[in-house]
Amino acid sequence: MASYVLKRILQGLFLIWLMSIVAFVAIYALGNPITALINPNSPADVIERVTRELGLDLPLHEQYFRFVGNLLRGDLGQSYVTSQPALGLILERFPATLELTLVAMTIAAAVGLPLGLYAGYRPQSLVGRGASAISMVVLSLPSFWTALALIIVFSIQARVLPTGGRGEIGFIFGVPTSLATLDGLRHVLLPALNLSAFPMALFIRLTASGVQETLHATFIRFARAKGLTVRRILFVYVLRNIVVPVITVIGIVFGVLLAFAVVTETIFAWPGSGRLIIDSIRSSDRPVIIAYLMFTVTIFIVINLTVDVICALLDPRISLQGGK
């Protein structure tokens, strides 16, 4: 177990190292950061002084070592716009994104998994056909489109929910969250619903096809030959078989959602890290973009590792000593 986890952590570190090269090239090789930091029309001696102060006159490999050294101390540079530490900006905004994503995942799983289970069991039924059709439509649509549709229906026409913002924040066990107040809940509902559309459709699809595939397996026929009830076959034998792929997908989707949140947060004015990255892109604030990228890569790696370990624990066929 330990050696397996260690191996995966090393793979993750390798990936982060790769990204650090990409990040370095993006900041230092593509375009001179000086031009972004100070007015390019400043006197030559000012430009030269700042260049020396920042170490930009050093050979590239020494600059890279300094960059990595800073990276290891958690210093991902400063925002060109606000001069605040880039990582700090992201960490400050991240809880809002995490909250939105978690609520969206919960909605998606609560609706998508049972619906997918049923659609897989009775694909020809009205619910089965309807679920597949809706998931196909949702997967076709970009999330800004569904966001606008939700706003038109719930905010502008029905006037029951606000169009954006985070609303009042309360505390649950000392954690600041919108889920603690009614106003906060009202604000989180639409963006979370919008963010949940994609994973919900994905869950419906994957569970349905997983169930259908499993139902054709010999071991299911054998379970029927044992005289088990349909209920028991569906909820124990079929579910047990698709639990590992479902958890894998939940993990992947969770990562995808953190990225997808960019669009939803922008439209619903949700003050998360996704909105920050769009603002940074618009103002060419490279250190923040790079910090966001490094941060996201790290989160992806952590999620993947967690998912792999959970799956290995759940699937008796995977030995943790040496993979499959």
Binding site: T218, F219, F222, A223, A225, K226, G227, Y237, N241
Partner: peptide, 23 residues
């Protein structure tokens, strides 16, 4: 259902795939 596995039981051809792999 009450007959299957109780009054008539069946053994399948393929021993590799007739048992549930994760139970």
């Amino acid at each position: 259902r009450q007959v299957r596995g109780h009054r008539i039981a069946m053994v399948f051809q393929d021993p590799m795939s007739s048992l549930h792999p994760m139970l």
